[in-house]
Structure formats: C-alpha cells, structure tokens
C-alpha cells in the first residue's frame, strides 16, 4: 500500500509535537518497519516552534532529512506558514482547528481540520490533543495499527504513568471519529 511515508509534525514546544513523532517511530519499530525521527532542536523548543521529521518505510531509509513531505500535522500558525508549501502534491495536511487563523489554501492536497484541543478539553485532559490529532491521522493514513501505538506508549511511558494509557486510547478513538464525521476536504 505504501513504501515510504515522510511526515512533518510541527507546532509550539509543549504541544506534544516531538512525542507524537516518537510514538509513531516506536510503533513502526514494533511493526518491524524502518523508521527515523529527526527533531529540530535548540532554544526554539522553549515556547517557540518545534518540529520533527518522522519517516516510516518498508525499505532502508537513505536521508532522514527531507524537504517535501507526504503528510504534515500542523499545530500552530507559524508552522502552517512554513510547511504548507512543503507538502507533496496529492499529500495530506492535518491541522488543529483552534490554533490556525489562516487555513491552508492549497487545492492539490487533502486537508483535514481537526478540533483536537476542543475535544481534549471535553475529555478533561488538555495534554492529549496531540493523541487526538494522531488518531485522526492514523485513520486516514494507517501506517501503524492503533493497538501498536498503545503498545508503544507502554514502552515509552514510565510505569507510574501507565494509568494514562486508557485516556490516550480514548483520544485516539476520538480522533478517528472526528475525521470520520467532521472533516473538510478540498481536492
């Protein structure tokens, strides 16, 4: 179905941008796929913009650094300004509804607007908006299974946080529902 998917995840530091990429990479490893996770790092992480490139592939990955992406998950306006043009033709762009003032204008890509923060607040856990985004993403691009993501969370989270896995699962499922009912597509 796919051979390689090059994904950019971008937003503010603290939105769980780097974790999202890490969880995807862990899940890919568990499913015996090739994967790389390349963070942008530096002082810009503290409150400024943060992003990571995650690649999942059935083949060995040559460059972990790319400038055109199959998929983009965008969580703030500066990242939208920076990365909208870097999505490949016929690529996929997911964005968080409340943080983006100027929505994307490209007509040659698939665009999904996800109200992740609003939904996270409804669930009562602000921090899981990234998992809602991830749930929506995986519904459209099933690069790894949802069960694998939960397994990956078990590996990544220290044991004292394992009680949070249930709410993460809820978030993934909410993301899946949101994209089913409420997506905006422009082709």
């Amino acid at each position: 179905m796919y051979t390689t998917d090059e994904i950019i995840i971008a937003g503010f530091g603290g939105q769980g941008v780097l974790s999202m990429g890490k969880i995807l990479a862990y899940s890919a490893m568990i499913e015996n796929k090739e994967t790389s996770w390349m963070p942008s790092y530096g002082p810009e992480m503290r409150g400024g913009t943060a992003n990571c490139i995650t690649i999942i592939s059935e083949n060995k990955i040559s460059s972990p650094i790319v400038s055109k992406f199959d998929s983009a998950i965008i969580l703030n306006q500066p990242s939208m300004n920076k990365f909208e043009d870097h999505v490949k033709e016929h690529g996929f762009l997911f964005y968080e509804a409340s943080t983006i003032i100027n929505p994307p204008t490209r007509e040659d890509i698939m665009v999904y607007k996800i109200a992740a923060i609003e939904e996270a607040n409804k669930i009562g856990q602000k921090q899981i908006s990234n998992m809602i985004m991830l749930g929506a993403f995986l519904e459209i691009k099933p690069l790894v299974k949802r069960e694998t993501v939960l397994l990956a969370l078990k590996k990544v989270l220290p044991e004292r946080h394992h009680h949070l896995i249930a709410v993460n699962e809820q978030a993934l499922l909410r993301g899946k529902e949101l994209v089913e009912i409420n997506y905006h597509v422009s082709v």
């Binding site: 994967t35 790389s36 790092y41």
Partner: peptide, 10 residues
C-alpha cells in the same frame, strides 16, 4: 554531528 546525536533510529 549534532543531528546524528539527536536523531532516533533502530
């Protein structure tokens, strides 16, 4: 280099 140090792979 800094990128190799910070990036994750299998």
């Amino acid at each position: 280099d800094g990128a190799l140090g910070q990036m994750m792979e299998k």
